[in-house]
Amino acid sequence: MMRTATAEEVGLIIDWAADEGWNPGLDDARAFHAADPVGFFVAEEDGEIVAAISVVNHSDSFAFLGLYLCRPDWRGKGVAFALWKHALAHAGERTVGLDGVAEQQANYARSGFALTGATSRFEGAARPAPALRGATPEDLPALTALDETANGITRPRFLGAWLADCDTRRTLVLDGPEGPAGFATARLCREGCKIGPVVAPDGETALALADAAAAALGAEAFILDVPSAQGGFREALKARGFVATFETARMYRGTPPEAADTLYAVATLELG
């Protein structure tokens, strides 16, 4: 049986992701579920969940696929692919994006996904950062607009939850002459601290934002998932001693969004 996951089950799915080494955030379940409460799906056999997936509808025109997981003893039996097709129907005619492991590209291509780039994970030490202020609820419209320009999509429900401070998450804002000009969100994960999204006018500012966001959570090191379009930023990270540890394929089914050059790190590989 295939059905929509409950909010509690979204937490279980994220635990599965942790078991697979994906290193989710400590408070991801709440923000993920808020993005699209009916965008998480499970397959059940004999009353037990054996596979899961998310297809989160961020807007009327864009969705993102992630958390595609299957219990090892149920792999190769067609259950996961049936759930894949069931979940994709939730997106309707929307463009759907995903960040998938490279060895699965051919499988995704058979479902209409085309490769557009890659996302590389960089890990390294934080440095002292300039003092930047924390985001406030009043900043949300401006930060949503910056995120929309950077990603080429609108996702207000996700950002409303993702940018809300809690014990394990902080968002720092860079102010410009006309209001917020950039921001970065840090979140504590099962291992270490991830920073994303990072939206900034240039690479130097992006690094300063990341350092400041890490410092807000007391992290001495951090992880960034950097789009392949930011080649210069990747080189700057390597020059600073960051190491690339993992890469995913960014693929879309449908017309890819028109992103700007201000996105230096994605929010999460699961929801974009």
Rank of each mutant, 00 (worst) to 15 (best):
Y68F: 14
Q105N: 14
Y68P: 05
A229I: 11
A164T: 15
E220W: 03
R75W: 01
R253D: 02
G232C: 08
G232W: 14
A102M: 09
T136Y: 00
A125T: 15
H90T: 03
R71W: 05
A145M: 13
M2I: 09
L143Q: 10
G152T: 13
D99A: 04
G241E: 08
A239Q: 11
P72S: 08
F113K: 10
K194E: 05
A215C: 03
A109G: 11
E8G: 11
A229M: 07
A91R: 06
P141E: 13
Y68V: 12
A82K: 15
A265F: 02
P24M: 06
T149D: 14
R110W: 07
Q230A: 12
G152Q: 09
A34C: 11
G196F: 00
C193S: 06
A229H: 09
V173W: 06
G124R: 13
D73A: 12
A239E: 11
E9A: 05
V199A: 04
A87I: 12
P177W: 09
T171F: 07
A212V: 07
F41H: 11
D73W: 09
Y108T: 13
R75T: 03
T262P: 02
A142W: 09
I13R: 00
T248F: 05
G176A: 07
P257M: 13
V266W: 01
A213C: 08
G241T: 04
A186K: 10
L174T: 02
V199D: 00
L98I: 10
T205K: 01
E20I: 03
A259R: 12
A31C: 05
F183G: 11
T255F: 04
A109Y: 06
G160Q: 09
D99Q: 03
L140M: 09
C70N: 04
E247G: 13
E44L: 04
V79E: 02
P72N: 10
F41K: 07
W74F: 06
P156M: 06
F32N: 00
W74A: 04
N23A: 10
G112Y: 07
Y252E: 02
P227N: 08
L67V: 06
L12Q: 13
A91Q: 04
G160V: 01
T149M: 14
V79I: 15
L140C: 05
L209K: 02
A118N: 12
L224G: 05
